[in-house]
Amino acid sequence: MKVLKLKKHNLNDYLDSLRVWGEVYGPVKQGEKYIYGQLDDLSKLDTKMLRTILPVKKFLMPPKFNTFTFDENKYKAELENIPNRIVFGVHPCEIHGLLILDKFFLERFPDPFYGERRRKTAILGLSCVPDDKCFAKSTNTHYVESGFDLAFNDLDNYYLVWVGSSLGDDLVRIRLDLFEEDIKEKDLKHYMEWRNWRDSQYKLNVNLTAMPDIMELNYSSPVWDELGDKCLSCGACSMVCPTCPCYNMSDQIRPSQFTGKRERTWDSCMFKQFALVAGGHNFREARSQRVRLWYTHKLKAFITEFGKAACIGCGRCIDTCPVDINVKTVVKALKGGK
């Protein structure tokens, strides 16, 4: 992989230059939290951010978007007006989340709505320092080798920039003059020192290795009933989870004529109607069954399906659930801890 250097004071100039390719987004502060916001004004960029409220999936499968417009029975896919976007500041764990979504959406039966957005979204990674809710080291998602176009590694006064794709290379060439190509031995040393230091910063450890077996053994555990009693079924966990892909569909028509659109919105298996079929049978009536499904799917089913858990250790569930149901507490409870 090609590696370059970029002086920190050149970052804003560089990001500014990328507007020739597409809209530039990055972490900005919203209240006490962060979001990926459009960077019309680069002074809003906050590179010290922790996790954003919504993960980068919001660009690839927005919470609400049209899949088709229709006129009588003629359907037209809405794939044309998707803008080029550059998302800067995506942490390694989240890029792992994208790799999971890529497998999910692009392998069996490719999803064109995801695929087209993915193709038009440049992912510019950024190294991070964990807080007490991050456990990416436990999930082995704290470094990433693919899934990004460029990845910026923060080393005091400069970034090491990893070029991860042909598009990434094109983006570098927009302002090649800002980059240095000579990686020296001291850079390597610097990088290794940073890596060792950062690895030592993980305070939270959530061991997921035996989870498939533990989930199986806990199938009838009262833990699920306790969690079900506590869960508000607000669905916030699914909204913020970088690997939750579920959605709902609804057709919107105009009152006066037979034209409309087929809209796709985020859904959550935590909601009561999720497994309800026409005729009234609900396959997961009890909240405890739904909580169990959520965690079984993340921590067991994905391993069966894709070889690894669908948890990237980003800590969003820990940061979001008002009643403290999250990967950390659930895993602990299932392992018999309190």
Partner: peptide
């Protein structure tokens, strides 16, 4: 078997049971 489905291609998640998608 029967389940609620919106996509038929293992994406919408409504038919999921453990690690399987009823639709696929």
């Amino acid at each position: 078997l029967e389940r609620r489905m919106h996509c038929g291609v293992g994406k919408c998640g409504h038919c999921v049971i453990g690690s399987i998608y009823t639709c696929m």
